[in-house]
Write a protein that binds this DNA or RNA. Structure first.
Lengths: 197, 197
DNA sequence: GTCTATAAATGGATAGAC
DNA sequence: GTCTATCCATTTATAGAC
């Protein structure tokens, strides 16, 4: 990708995330990226194409590798807390993550393909990895999880539940690392007690 | 409110919910409500005012009376399942509820007051009622809930977790009543086990 | 490939007739 | 109070010079 194309993508990212699809103009993108509008159109077919391309790429970049760098053979409470912390940092604490989530939720009806990519690369992928992990623990008799996918869904819900909606609605600031750690400790404990044998 | 004003509000509701703030034009609202644009402006000061007014009113209407019509002196599993079912019907199953949630999430940055109203009348109100209920159970020694607000947040997260994101992203249809009932049964059981004494 | 300039359409909002 | 007609700014997208 040429240098100008990258500048355009970068400007489009921040503007789309900041203002949403409809409220962001190609003029603004051209201005912000320091090129003229025809140059934007020489690299990207249309506003829709630029938006879908940029957002899908972001989903894949931020994409939710929940278990990246997490040692999965420690105690479940430690493993799950690490996974939960990673998820909250990506979706709740990170301003970019929040903005991306907000944007894909907004535009999913108009861009179904984007909704699908966001789901596959993000929550669904994370849920599957947690489900596999829980199924493994169940096989070892450490927990009682008859439906791993449902349990993983509960886990994700519990972890994000206390933060996600108020933060998305702008009525609470994202939690500090200290509050996050303390809260997730309790949440993971409650979850593990709920699925204990 | 006059008849025309009500037609305008009704048209504005469906169009804003369907297409979002920026993609909905005052022309379209006038056309859909069967009046002319100046009539719209004679009743409402501006597009922003119309949007904020209509959405805030919807939040208060749909507003989350989690315990309305729920007998709170039955077994906790029954009470909490009723609350959870009511919440999922409002936010996940109802197309209008989903659209409202999506819209307020989208526009919360541009309309902070709307975000506040949506939070206060909806999730926060529901969370507080569940927190009070759990605190009562804790006082009777039926559960171990040292932090009722956090526990209520976990509860809401667990209940919506398996449904909310995939439904908002458009990758899964809302659950049938049968699936909802079966799933919430398991979720409530896991939650209660997690907070058991 | 990139720019200036502009086309063609649509947006929010209003003046003035009735 | 309501409409027809219109203003003015802005939008997406492109034509043509360099």
């Amino acid at each position: 990708m040429s240098e100008k194309a990258e500048q355009i993508v970068s400007a489009a990212q921040s503007l789309f995330l900041e203002d949403g699809y409809a409220a962001t103009s190609m003029d603004a993108i051209a201005h912000e990226s320091g090129v003229s509008k025809p140059t934007v159109y020489s690299h990207f077919q249309s506003k829709e194409g630029l938006f879908a391309g940029v957002m899908c790429r972001m989903c894949e970049d931020i994409g939710f590798d929940a278990f990246d760098g997490v040692e999965t053979d420690g105690p479940p409470a430690v493993v799950l807390k690490a996974v939960a912390t990673d998820m909250c940092r990506r979706l709740v604490v990170s301003e970019q993550g929040r903005a991306l989530l907000r944007t894909v939720i907004c535009e999913a009806p108009a861009f179904p393909e984007l909704g699908r990519v966001a789901w596959e690369t993000g929550p669904r992928y994370g849920r599957e990895m947690v489900a596999d992990y829980l199924a493994g623990l169940d096989g070892q008799g450490e927990v009682d999880v008859p439906d791993p996918v449902l349990a993983a869904g509960m886990f994700f819900g519990m972890v994000t539940g206390p933060f996600l909606i108020p933060v998305l609605l702008g009525t609470e600031p994202p939690p500090s690392e200290a509050v996050l750690s303390e809260t997730l400790e309790k949440i993971v404990a409650t979850f593990l007690k709920g699925v204990s044998v």
